[in-house]
Simulated scan of single mutants.
Amino acid sequence: MISQLKHPFFVIIGPSGSGKTKVAEAVFPSDYKVISHTTRPIRNDEKNGVDYYFETKEQFEKLLNDGALAEYDTYHGNQYGVGIEELIQKTSNHYAYDVLTFQGFQEIEKQFGYMVIPIFLDVSKKNVLSRLQSRQDDAEILKQRGELYDQDSYNINKVIAYSNHYIIDGNQSFEKVVRDVKQTVNEVVEKS
């Protein structure tokens, strides 16, 4: 382990289309987010240093070579990674969060241990596909996301192996999911 985190780091995990990002944004204060690095192009509604640290491929490669990332992955041809310095800094005065893949959670948990708390949103494939159809019109993307769901949903079995895990029923109304995640966060923060 590199350094002990002073406060919990919540990792929101779930299948693509499960609503992870919207739930996280409704539960956590925006300045509690651990901002990831990415080589993905910035979108019109995004801000550098708020949504992501947008990097060139060369800048991202330097972060990798310098050992500055706690975890990293490639998704749809773009690289993503969580900076160690950012993670330690964001958890120095209060808890923090990020929305990551299960593999991203695993890598960070290996380095920082029990203070890394996985919260898995368990959503049925039917609900995920319905949500994706409402925001995507490309049949090929929907097909890819459906296949990705099968991989992502299997991770619930892996999350359960961690003693400090939480599983939230993501098939409930958005408000109920947000309430359940807030309750989980409050319980963990009170214990730590």
Rank of each mutant, 00 (worst) to 15 (best):
M1T: 09
S3C: 10
Q4A: 11
L5W: 00
K6L: 10
K6S: 12
K6V: 05
H7N: 11
H7A: 03
P8Q: 04
F9L: 13
F9C: 07
V11M: 13
V11F: 06
I12D: 01
I13S: 04
P15H: 01
P15V: 02
S16F: 00
S16E: 00
G17C: 00
S18P: 06
T21G: 05
K22A: 15
V23A: 05
A24W: 01
A24Q: 04
P29M: 01
P29C: 07
P29W: 00
D31N: 15
D31S: 12
V34P: 12
S36C: 10
T38W: 07
T38I: 07
T39Y: 00
T39W: 01
T39H: 00
P41C: 10
P41W: 00
I42P: 10
R43N: 15
N44Q: 13
D45F: 09
K47L: 14
G49P: 10
V50T: 13
Y52E: 09
F54V: 08
E55A: 06
E58W: 02
Q59G: 15
F60W: 01
F60Y: 07
E61T: 12
K62G: 06
L64N: 12
D66F: 05
G67S: 07
A68P: 06
L69S: 00
L69Y: 01
A70C: 03
E71I: 03
Y72N: 13
Y72M: 08
T74V: 14
Y75A: 14
H76G: 08
G77I: 09
Y80T: 04
V82G: 05
V82Y: 09
G83E: 05
G83C: 09
I84N: 02
E85H: 09
L87C: 05
I88L: 10
Q89V: 12
K90N: 10
S92G: 08
N93P: 04
N93S: 13
A96E: 04
Y97S: 04
D98F: 11
V99K: 03
F102T: 01
F102A: 03
Q103G: 07
Q103D: 13
G104Q: 04
G104W: 00
F105K: 05
E107R: 11
E109N: 07
K110M: 06
Q111F: 04
F112G: 03
Y114L: 13
Y114N: 15
V116K: 00
I117H: 06
I117L: 09
I117K: 04
P118C: 10
L121R: 02
D122Q: 12
D122T: 05
K125E: 14
N127C: 05
N127M: 07
V128H: 01
S134W: 06
S134Q: 15
R135F: 01
D137Y: 11
A139W: 12
A139D: 13
E140G: 09
E140Q: 11
Q144Y: 14
R145L: 02
D150E: 15
D152E: 08
S153V: 12
Y154F: 14
Y154I: 07
N155C: 05
I156P: 10
I156A: 01
N157G: 13
Y162P: 09
S163R: 15
S163A: 14
N164V: 12
N164F: 03
N164H: 15
N164P: 11
Y166V: 11
N171F: 01
E175T: 10
E175A: 15
V177K: 00
V178H: 01
V178G: 02
V181A: 05
Q183F: 04
V185L: 02
N186Q: 15
E187Y: 08
E187K: 15
V189Y: 03
V189G: 02
S192P: 02
S192L: 11
